[in-house]
């Protein structure tokens, strides 16, 4: 079957693209790696900046978006995409299981994944004190000491969530100012059991049966921070390995694309966190989904006219 467009990813960008594709009467489907996934937003405890849904938890917001797309008849195909191949009249999408799907256009909305620290002890202690999901694992550290590493919204939100459970939260950041929203920084500053450790670079995670300490470097000196858990929130890396040879990426790996979603490859569009942009939030991801479908329609009409 030749689709008009296949949408890779079922986060807010992909789900909104599905909603717009349905309304545009396109032959389309959403390809997702994780069954019933809704992207990174599911892992956010509370979303205060998506208009109309003040205070909603990220999982519920994701479910609402998914229900919306499902109500409009969206088909979800479970595949891990490993590569794309340009063919006459469109694209072939190659999957980990060896399947090949065909579509006239492709929308890359596969978002980003949590970045790792790449320091000694990180891999060894993952699942035994090192975590990338405060919501998932926070409760195991009730009454214990934890370190949260990072300076963005995720790190600050994680620290605030963990402060409700843990006895003590060390918030470790390599710079002296946070990138996070002012409201979150203020909240953290007024939370008694959060201690800020700034201008500190994590260098090692130590443990015996599980994590016991984080070693940081400050002004060239090493310091030991006693911690039973280390929560890593140092940003994300775009999931663009499958388009590396196909579309132009920036130095970090984001697909270079303007608001229209058009990439350097014909018939290939990018939406959501995966593309170069100023603000990576649900509100801009959903907008990208809508724009990408408008671009797909224009592309298909233009191709038909030739």
């Amino acid at each position: 079957m030749m689709y008009d467009t296949l949408i890779i990813g079922s986060g807010p960008a992909g789900l909104t693209a599905a909603i717009y594709a349905s309304r545009a009467g396109l032959q389309y489907a959403v390809i997702e790696r994780e069954p019933m996934g809704t992207g990174q937003i599911a892992y956010t405890e509370r979303v205060d900046n998506y208009p109309g849904f003040y205070g909603i938890d990220g999982f519920s917001l994701g479910e609402k978006l998914r229900e919306h797309a499902e109500t409009l008849g969206t088909a979800f195909l479970e595949h891990e995409v490993t590569g794309l191949k340009s063919v006459q009249n469109g694209w072939q999408i190659l999957t980990a299981a060896g399947d090949v799907l065909e579509s006239r256009t492709v929308i890359c909305a596969s978002g980003a994944s949590p970045k790792r620290l790449e320091i000694s002890g990180e891999s060894e202690w993952t699942g035994r004190g090192v975590s990338y999901c405060a919501l998932c694992d926070g409760a195991f550290f009730t009454g214990k000491r934890v370190a949260v590493i990072g300076g963005g919204n995720t790190a600050l939100s994680d620290a605030l969530y963990l402060a409700k459970l843990a006895e003590k939260v060390y918030l470790i950041h390599r710079r002296d100012v946070f990138r996070a929203d002012h409201a979150l920084i203020e909240q953290a500053a007024h939370t008694d059991n959060i201690e800020l450790v700034l201008q500190a670079i994590p260098v090692e995670i130590q443990g015996t049966d599980s994590v016991t300490a984080l070693i940081v470097s400050r002004n060239g000196n090493k310091h030991l921070i006693p911690a039973d858990g280390v929560f890593v929130a140092v940003g994300s890396v775009p999931n663009t390995a499958y388009v590396r040879e196909i579309a132009e990426l920036d130095s970090i790996g984001y697909i270079i694309a303007p608001e229209s979603g058009e990439t350097s490859a014909k018939g290939l569009f990018a939406a959501g966190d995966i593309r170069t942009k100023q603000v990576r939030q649900v509100v801009t991801a959903t907008a990208d989904g809508a724009n990408a479908i408008a671009s797909v329609q224009a592309y298909i009409q233009k191709a038909a006219a030739v």
Binding site: P35, M36, G37, Y43, F59, C133, C136
Partner: peptide, 14 residues
């Protein structure tokens, strides 16, 4: 599993 864990919810039907 834990109640607040999204991967746990996703794994449930599996």
């Amino acid at each position: 599993y834990s109640d607040s864990c999204i991967p746990c919810k996703r794994m449930s039907p599996v």
